[in-house]
Amino acid sequence: MATVIFPDFLWPLTGGLKDTEVGGERYRDLVEQLDSRFPGIAERLEKTAVAIDGQIHQDAYLEPLEPDSEVVFMPRIEGG
């Protein structure tokens, strides 16, 4: 099960939950499961970057997850 960490801007959608554990082989599976628990979070995550085991992705859709992966959502960075 991947450990998922929610930043404060997602707390309104998670009911204040700061972290959880979710299964899934790929990132999209994880998002589907999260959306079933926290309806509407998938849409919000479309605009959110994610760090999977330290690697920051702007679009992680197909990224594989390991059983002990750490998934951290964060605001998208684009820079100048």
């Binding site: 930043p7 760090a51 085991d53 330290g54 750490e70 951290v72 959502f73 964060m74």
Partner: peptide, 12 residues
């Protein structure tokens, strides 16, 4: 490498 940044991700 491995330090957790303030935004939650571990540095590569």
């Amino acid at each position: 490498e491995g330090t957790t940044a303030p935004y939650g991700a571990k540095f590569p």
